[in-house]
Design a protein around this nucleic acid. Structure first.
Lengths: 340, 340
DNA sequence: TTGAAAGCGCTACCAG
DNA sequence: CTGGTAGCGCTTTCAA
């Protein structure tokens, strides 16, 4: 265990000042080619790497972004971690994970985040309160809410940016499609009652049914959990007459529902019951499910998140809301379009 | 955007020295109750939080642990992120994510990791070379290899600790179980050819079959990918006679195989073909699969990882290897034990 | 372009 | 127990 070399060690070896070493490793600083060469050679020899912490202390930019999530059971979120990390790494940032209990007070997490002097925060946990975002903003730390918004009505100008897919349009489309395929007793399987995603999808869904003169036939709450969704599905089918279709607030719950439908209730999908989900997680494409779903396009969503973050970290830009279109992925969990 | 308060600001307000403020926020430092009260009151009023970066510069401990992964398609890894983050958060550490390309040279990642002065590294990427671990160790940064080991033979004392499940025993048990249930033409679906997990599971499996006078009936490589495993399964069944059982190096591939078996080849599981996986990811329990598998106990594995890391970060302890037992989870993808 | 010097915010070591 | 002082490793003035 040899001690880590400092800039001064490199300077000594290269016979230049420590400042020259610093400049060599600062993009855009003015150093002569000659000096730079000497420094680089010495640095190479010693295995020198600038200490990012010391640098951050001066520049007041840590190049660290906090990512707050609460549970990774839904495969959508791991994909976000992966793609967001890659994206930010490419921009010279790194992701510091904060896993929060679903019911945890925002304050504890906030305190920890702020201690690390993060340059930005991405909140992808469905649960954390608006106050956290508010307080980060007050301190000048940009916040992007991922896949959630804080104020549905948009009355007050909120303090954080947001990136969501067009949940309302997705919900509407789901309704339209199910009606078009001949389903009439259509149930909604809600996620978390107070999550903006579930709420918006339901709003679109209700409006979409209304456009065909229908209303939601039955409704249950799965809380975005597998078990919760299975229980909710049983509820949905406990009374006569049963629904003939389910729109679930996400794929994870839709899949749980399909298992109950087929294995417990002996119903055939899509003949007896049609199912539509939301997200297009990898599992939705698996042969045993072939779930028709509204894809949340992770790539564009993550790109927008990184862009908003970088913009706001660079300048003092106003928070913005980005809405990414959903994409209908039709598979085999609803009846085919009628021919002729 | 008000400026962030520093320790000196708190000291001024509380009418004490800046040192007193520092001590108040240093666990185990000697401060009188009176001083502490004054400081805490002032800190509260200003919303003061110590700057973790400045602290780290002095203490030479960043309380940051790097977590290196390469892909999160296999749901086992998100679980690890979640549990490891929680665990380390509880110990006052935080996880900085590094997503590496599978084929990426270790050097780029290493340089980034070291710049952040992380206190430790967890490598859960199946791909990164041993050299990365070696070099971190040389610099005095403890490394724990998660779910992989570098030197199968253990000839040289390696430079990193490791936490694995008992892959060999698991492989052996899978073989024993399949034979016991009457399967005789048993195929192995390998992960990555050069990953220690796949290799060890296969070794145990081969030995387990040998104990019953059998050998591996056929073998294909799925590279731990869903598509790869589907393709490999088709290969396995392309020749006559077909296998009557598959042991897959992980659940993710086992599930892919089940889809091909049932939906493309019209085979019935477990009657025509038995399937055993490895990991016990949540999907293995889903009603459509009910996969019999060897559980890698994430909780104990993560606990061991955190413990090894903390031990080595605290003292200069030698790297150790921890092997966590697997647990057989029997579901419906192999034939039941014969009665009578 | 370069080197000397002043700190970033904090901890750790003193002497009292 | 307390306050003063040195300095972690670096960036960034400033004068040369």
């Amino acid at each position: 265990m040899k001690s880590v070399p400092r800039a001064q060690d490199v300077a000594n070896l290269a016979q230049v000042s420590q400042s020259a070493v610093s400049r060599t490793f600062t993009p855009g600083a003015s150093v002569s080619d000659d000096t730079r060469r000497k420094v680089l050679a010495a640095a190479q020899k010693l295995g020198y790497r600038p200490n990012a912490l010391a640098r951050s202390l001066i520049t007041r930019r840590s190049r660290i972004v906090a990512l707050v999530m609460s549970y990774l059971e839904n495969q959508f979120y791991p994909l976000v971690i992966e793609k967001l990390s890659r994206k930010l790494q490419a921009e010279g940032y790194h992701v510091l994970m904060f896993i929060s209990e679903m019911d945890e007070a925002a304050d504890g997490v906030l305190a920890e985040i702020l201690q690390y002097q993060v340059d930005g925060v991405v909140m992808a946990s469905a649960m954390l309160s608006e106050s956290l975002a508010q307080r980060c903003s007050d301190l000048g730390v940009p916040v992007v809410q991922f896949n959630r918004i804080s104020d549905l009505r948009g009355l007050a100008r909120h303090s954080a940016s947001s990136v969501t897919s067009d949940n309302y349009a997705g919900g509407r489309l789901a309704a339209k499609l199910l009606v078009e395929r001949g389903y009439r007793h259509i149930a909604f399987l809600a996620g978390l009652e107070d999550s903006s995603t579930s709420l918006e999808r339901e709003r679109g869904f209700v409006d979409g049914l209304a456009a065909s003169g229908l209303s939601v036939f039955r409704r249950a709450v799965g809380r975005y959990r597998f078990d919760g969704a299975q229980e909710a599905t049983r509820e949905l089918f406990a009374q006569e007459p049963p629904p003939d279709a389910i729109f679930a607030a996400n794929d994870h719950m839709a899949i749980a529902a399909m298992d109950v439908l087929r294995l417990e209730l002996n119903l055939e999908i899509p003949r007896d019951v049609g199912v539509i989900g939301f997200d297009d997680v990898p599992e939705a494409a698996w042969g045993s499910y072939r779930l028709t779903t509204l894809r949340q396009c992770v790539e564009p969503m993550v790109d927008a998140t990184a862009r908003l973050l970088c913009e706001q970290m660079a300048a003092e830009l106003c928070p913005r809301d980005v809405v990414v279109p959903c994409e209908l992925i039709e598979r085999a969990s609803i009846r085919q379009r009628q021919r002729g």
